[in-house]
Amino acid sequence: MRKLSTRRRHPIAGLLVIAFALVLAGALYSVVAPEPATAESASASEIEAGRELFLVGCASCHGLNAQGIETKAEHDGKPGNYGPSLIGVGAAAVGFQMETGRMPMAKTAPQVPVKSPNYSQEEIDQIAAYIASLAPGPSRPSDEYLDWESVDKEGVSAGGEFFRTNCTACHNSTGQGGALPDGRYAPSLVGVEPIHIYEAMLTGPQQMPVFSEEVLTPEEKLQVIAYIKQVQNQPTHGGVGGGGLGPVVDGMFVWIIGIGGLIGFAVWIGMHGTRVKKQ
C-alpha cells in the first residue's frame, strides 16, 4: 500500500485513474444500459446475398447503396423522397415492412397497405442483414420479448395504461384502427403478429411515432402487446359486438333492428283487428 501511495503523484497516475474510471463506467453502462433486444451477427455471405436481392428488388427506389433517392419536387422546403434512405433503419424496419407485405410497395398511395409478403423468410432475413450491416440500427426483438402470454395481470393493465395514453387516439381502444387525414389511416391491430407490433413501435413506420428502447423498454413493449392481445382475444361480453366501432354501429342497430323490427310488429298488430278479420 505504501508503494502505491508514494506513487500517487507520478505523472502517469492521473492518466491511469482516468483510464480505469472510463473502463469501469463503460462496463457499468454495458450492464445497466437498456440493451437492444438482440444483435444477431450475420455472416458475410448472408449480407452479400441480401445485397444481391436488394439490388434487384429495392434499389430502383431506395438507391444502389440504400441511400435513398430524392425527388426534385419539394415538400415544405425539403426535397421529397422517391424512396427514403435505409441507412441506419436496422433489421427491425426491414422485418416489419417486408413481412407484412408493405414492401415492396404495389403502387404509390397515401399509405402503403398490408398485403401478403412477396419474399420468403430466408430472403427477408438476408435483406435485413444487409441493411443492418450498413449502419447500426434497431435490430429484431428476441423471442423473450414477444411471449405476451407470460405477462402478469399488473403488467397487462400497465400496458393498457400506456396503450390508452399513446396509441388509442389513432388505433382505437381495441386496436380496430382509425382514420387519419388525406386517405391515411392507423391500421387495424387485429391479428397482427407480436413481432410486428413490437417492430412498429421500435421503428415508427409511416405516420407512427417511434418508441425507442430508451423511451419504452422491451419489457414495457411486451406489456403493450399483451394488453392488445388480451383485449382482442377476450370474449365480447354482452353479445355480438359492433366490431369495436362504437356508437355509430349501435345507432344503426337501433334503427334497423329496433325500429324496423317493432314497426313490423306494429303492422302485424294493426292488421289483426276484429274488423280486419276475414269474413
Partner: peptide, 19 residues
C-alpha cells in the same frame, strides 16, 4: 347485441382519447 362495452375504453383521463 353488445352496446357500450365500457371496459374496453378504460377509465376517463383527460389526457387520453380513442379513435
Amino acid at each position: 347485441i353488445q352496446i357500450n362495452p365500457v371496459w374496453v375504453y378504460g377509465p376517463y383521463n383527460p389526457a387520453e382519447v380513442t379513435a
